[in-house]
Each structure stands twice: as structure tokens, then as C-alpha cells.
Design a binder for these strands. Structure first.
Lengths: 218, 218
DNA sequence: ACTGACTGACTGACTGTTCAGTATAGGGGA
DNA sequence: TCCCCTATACTGAACAGTCAGTCAGTCAGT
């Protein structure tokens, strides 16, 4: 479906440019969007702040492009992982795993912080809001497609796939917030189990929690 | 009790102090936590910036107290509304309604933005993180209690109430993000219906989406 | 020599915080 | 009553630090 997504991502091949974008992403993840200074980004690359301005006209443009770059990276990884999984329930579990567990091969370990910052900045910055809406729409469409495939294959019960996509993406967003904030009541494993239990119950497929987090069921 | 908390108690009763706190909350909701200037708060109250520093030693302390103040206000309203509802399913619906629909009598209309900012700042500010964790723990406990009551009364099916609390609070958080960001795919009414459908299916109680979601309480 | 990558040094704006000082209210004494 | 004294609320102005953005100019490759 989305085999030609490389176009937009490879528009900028300038290595210095992508180097700066990557550095900006690191700084944003560490210090936060609002606390990111051009000097920090420049120092991380090992160049002068003026060079950052040379490549990106303003700070706003740098940060906006960095956010979009993060989205591209995240989805490139995500689709690569997803394509290798044959069953719909397996792909659904992969989606939940990517969202809840930090040791997956998708995105940086602190990508949750980036998400929260994305939402926060999207509140008031139209450029960020556009990226966010695109990102979420794409994410929901991914879930919807998996649900649809599973229903067509008889793995899932028939029900409104859009509805499931909205509910499940919201659930995952909410859980990722608790994980990002290290809430003691919501560990990564618990979030994973909660989301999977939820999805399996909703879609009517069998799923058993792994050994270490298995608990009694009614 | 007076020896250690007398200062704090009198502090909260100072009208000028609460006036500044309220103004700070308004500015935070409008401009965002990171973009809030003490000059803005002072101007809204009609005093000099120096007076704000006179009451709150630093900007950080002002903002931290403002956030805590918001939490207090929100829960005061929330518990008042909840107490008047007899059935557990009714209280659960009220919880969802408070979260999803903007015209309820709980909190300011833009309290979602405040929540997102709360999460964002909690990522890196320990003082805010403490308020956030308290807030969420209280919120989950509220849900858990309602679920437990409903199960005891036979309204809900038996299942782990903690599990339901984690899942439902996460779902509501995720939906509130989409609402706050005005995502075209998730209107307030749709979020409300999604959450209620989810909860009723999970807990096994009957719920029908209203023909037209009632708004503006008569 | 021309172009593009790159830099050091500067500026200009913003803003949290301080501080010296003003005004007002109240209390106590004569 | 009048005056003095003190504490409290409050302000205008300035200070000090931070940073995005600019610019003239250097350096390397062609």
C-alpha cells in the first residue's frame, strides 16, 4: 500500500543536514522541545551555531523539520517490522509491542517523551499540529488495516474497524503517557498485557499473557 | 498541626494569592506552560511583575503551585458531581462525560490543554511530576471505586477492577488528547460514544448511544 | 578566482529577579 | 486628638543572563 514512501524522505540527502536533524532530535528528546537551544544542537554535531542557521533559516524551521524527520524514521522502522509478520493477530501484537516496550528495534528508547512533546507543541504550533495529525491518521490507518485483514482472514470478529482503530490508538497513547512518565502503577509489561487483553477481548481472538506477567483470570 | 502547616494554610486563604494563581492558570492554558511570562500574569491581575515575585519567590514556584491549584479545583468539582449520582453505571458515565465533553460543569473548557502541558512538563520537572502522579493515582482510584461498587451491586461483571481502571483511564487520556488537538477523526461526541461502548462491553452492562448526545444541561 | 561550507564575534531583544523606595493602615503612647 | 513607629503591600527602574539571528570574513576545493 505504501511502498513508495521513500520519496519524501529522500528529498534531502545532504549528510550534514540529516546529521543536524538527528542531533536536534536527540536534544529535543533529552531537554524537551521548548528547552532546545541551537547551541546544544550545534555542539552535539561539533559545529558552530551559525552553521545550523546556515542550513535551517530559523530555529522554528529546524525543530519542525526535526519532528517530521522523526515521524519518517519511526514509520520506516515500523513498516519494515510489520511486513515480516504473516498473521493479523501477530501484526497487531507487534503494534502494541512497539508502543509499549522500550527494547524494540523501532525508534529511540525515549521516543515516548518525543510523542508527548509533539502533542504539547501541536497545541499551539500549526506546523507541528500538521505533522501530528498526519502521524495519528497514519497510525490509525495502520491499525484499521490490520483489523480489516484479520477480519477478512477470520481471525477477528466482525465489527467497525474504524471504531477499533480510534479506541485502540487512544488506549495505546494513554498507556504510553504513563510509561513515559514512569508511573509506578503502569510498567511497560503491564501496559503491554493490558492493551493486548483489551484488543483480544474486543476483537475476539485468543491471547495469553507471557509467563512473567501472567495473572489469574476470571 | 498548626506548627508545620499554619503557613501553608494562611497562604492559601490570601485572596491576592489565589487571584494570582487563577490568573496564572489562565495564562498557562492560553499560552502554555513554557510560554507563560510573569509579566502576563501580573498584567492579568493588574499589578506589577514585582508583586508576583513578592508572593511567590520564583517563577517555578508560581507555576508549580498553579498546577496543584488546578488539580484541587478539578477534583473539588468532580467529586461534587459524582456524589449526586446513585448508580455505578451512572457515575461511570459521568466520569467519561467529564473527560470527553467540554460543556460540563467541571474545569475550564480548555482543561485538556492543561493536562497535556501537565504531562509534558512532568517529563522533566520533578515538582510537576509529583502533582501528575498524585493526580493520575487519584483518578484511577476513582474509576476503580466505581467499578468495584458496580460489581458489588451486580451492575458490572466481575473482573480485576485495577485492570479496568488502568485501561479506562488510559483510553480516556488518549481520547482527550485527540479532542484537545481537535483531530477531525475524533469529535467529543465520538470519543464519548467510543469510551462508553468500550466500558460497557468490558464490564458487561447495557449502554446505548443517545440519538443526539445531550449537551447544555437544562 | 569563484563558490559554497563554515566560523567568531557581535547585537538586539527578551525576561526573571532584585532593590531601593513609596503609600497606607494600624497600634500605642502622651 | 495628634504624632510617631512599624509592618505590609506594592511599584518603577534597573540589572544580568540568555539566545536567536546577523555579518563580515576565512578556508578549501575546483
Amino acid at each position: 500500500m505504501s511502498s513508495t514512501t521513500a520519496g519524501a524522505a529522500t528529498v534531502e540527502l545532504d549528510p550534514r543536514r540529516t546529521q543536524i536533524l538527528r542531533a536536534a532530535l536527540e536534544v529535543i528528546a533529552e531537554r524537551g522541545y521548548g528547552e532546545t537551544r541551537i547551541a546544544d544542537v550545534a555542539e552535539r554535531v561539533g559545529v558552530s551555531p551559525a552553521l545550523v542557521m546556515y542550513y535551517f533559516k530559523t530555529k522554528d524551521r529546524l525543530l519542525a523539520e526535526a519532528i517530521r524527520h522523526a515521524e519518517d524514521l519511526w514509520y520506516a522502522d515500523g513498516t519494515r517490522v510489520m511486513e515480516a509478520i504473516p498473521t493479523a493477530s501477530g501484526r497487531l501484537e507487534a503494534l502494541v509491542r512497539i508502543t509499549c516496550l522500550s527494547d524494540e528495534e523501532v525508534g529511540p528508547s525515549d521516543s515516548w517523551a518525543l510523542w508527548i512533546d509533539l502533542w504539547c507543541q501541536a497545541l499551539r504550533r500549526p506546523a507541528v499540529a500538521a505533522v501530528r495529525e498526519e502521524f495519528d491518521a497514519h497510525w490509525r490507518e495502520t491499525i484499521r488495516a490490520v483489523v480489516h485483514d484479520g477480519q477478512a482472514a477470520g481471525e477477528f470478529e466482525p465489527m467497525d474497524a474504524d471504531e477499533v482503530a480510534v479506541a485502540l490508538s487512544a488506549l495505546l497513547d494513554g498507556l504510553s503517557i504513563q510509561i513515559a512518565l514512569h508511573d509506578p502503577a503502569v510498567t511497560e509489561e503491564r501496559a503491554f498485557a493490558t492493551a493486548m487483553r483489551f484488543a483480544s477481548r474486543l476483537l475476539g481472538f485468543a491471547w495469553e499473557p507471557p509467563e512473567q506477567v501472567r495473572r489469574h483470570r476470571a
